[in-house]
Structure formats: C-alpha cells, structure tokens
Simulated assay, not measured.
Amino acid sequence: MNRVLSRLVAIALIIGASTAYAVQPDEIMANAVQESRARELSRELRCMVCQNQSIDDSDAPLARDLRLLVRERIASGESNSQVIEFLVARYGDFVLLRPRLIGVTLLLWFLPPLFLSGGGLALWLNSRRHIRLSDGGSPGPLELSEEEKARLERLIGGPA
C-alpha cells in the first residue's frame, strides 16, 4: 500500500511541477475570486518580452508589471472585458495570445489554412499527373517533321 501511495504522490508532484506559474506570492490577491479572475486574464495576455508565453507563465519583469496592473484594475472593480480593453488600448492587439477576428487579423486567421489547402491541392494534382503518365497516358516521344529533320541535319553538318 505504501508503494502505491508513494507512486501517486510522485505522479502528483510531476504533474504539479509541469503547471508551475511565474506568479510570485506577493502578487496574489487576498480575495480568491478576484485572484482566479486575475489568473484567467493572465493566461490570455501575451508577454511582450517572451512573445509566446502568457504573462502568467513568464518571469520577465514586464510580465510581472502586467500581472500587477491586471490585479490592480480588478481590485478597483473593473470587469474582465474592461481590463482587456485597457491593455489592448495601451499595447495593441498583440497583447492578446489569441488575436481577435477583425479586419486586420483576417489574414492571420485564414492564410495558413488557405496555404495548406492550396499545397494539398497542388500535391494531389501533381500525383494524378504522375499516375496518368506512368499508366501510359502520354502520347510517347514526339516525332520531328521532315522540315525539322532537314534543319537538324544542316545544323549538325551532315548530308542535306
């Protein structure tokens, strides 16, 4: 029984270690509901230094400043959307880990699937062409006309 318990504890520690965040103890709010809102928002906001990490995961000083700013605005009574709007107004849409679907970001959202679809279509058409050629679908080698043969002989220097 002790072995099973020690294995469960080890698994829990491994899982817990993989979900560690950069939030420092002095940043945590006393109100648990507000803290959970702050953590939720922090997971949606990009660290401008790390760029592919949320501010919740980043140890960068700017990420800490943003976490504190989020907590400050939540403590002042702002809603989640008001906090997000404030940060977007200040830093632009880049601060969002998942960009909004607006005119400027349409290319960002739709070009990758379009390129993948186009590449897949090109591969499919190319493979069909190769299959058709390997099945004898091509007319074979082209024959030169009599005029082309005579010209070729003149260029080579043979009998005309």
Rank of each mutant, 00 (worst) to 15 (best):
I131D: 00
G120D: 03
L144P: 00
S145R: 04
K149C: 14
A150P: 00
P159N: 14
E147D: 14
E146Y: 08
L123Q: 07
R132I: 12
G119Y: 15
I131G: 00
G137T: 03
G140D: 04
G119K: 10
L125G: 05
L121M: 12
R128I: 05
G137K: 01
H130I: 13
E148S: 08
L144C: 07
I131H: 00
P139T: 02
G118M: 08
S127R: 15
L142Q: 13
W124Q: 04
R154A: 12
G136P: 04
D135C: 11
L142F: 02
G120F: 11
G119F: 12
E148I: 03
S117F: 07
P159K: 14
L123W: 15
S117Q: 06
L123C: 05
L121K: 09
R132N: 06
G137E: 03
L155M: 06
G137H: 03
R154P: 01
I156S: 12
S127W: 15
K149A: 15
E148P: 00
L144M: 15
A150S: 08
I131F: 00
P139E: 02
R154N: 11
A150E: 07
L152G: 07
R154K: 15
G140L: 04
P141S: 08
L125C: 12
W124P: 00
E143P: 03
R154G: 02
E146H: 07
L125M: 12
E147N: 05
R154F: 11
R132K: 13
L144T: 03
L121S: 03
S127E: 11
A150F: 07
R128E: 10
D135S: 09
G119S: 12
L121V: 11
R151Q: 14
G136Q: 01
N126I: 07
R151K: 15
L125W: 03
E143M: 06
E147A: 10
R132H: 09
P141M: 13
G137P: 06
L121A: 09
L121D: 01
D135K: 10
I156T: 07
R132E: 07
S117E: 03
R128C: 07
S117T: 11
I156E: 10
R129Q: 14
L133T: 02
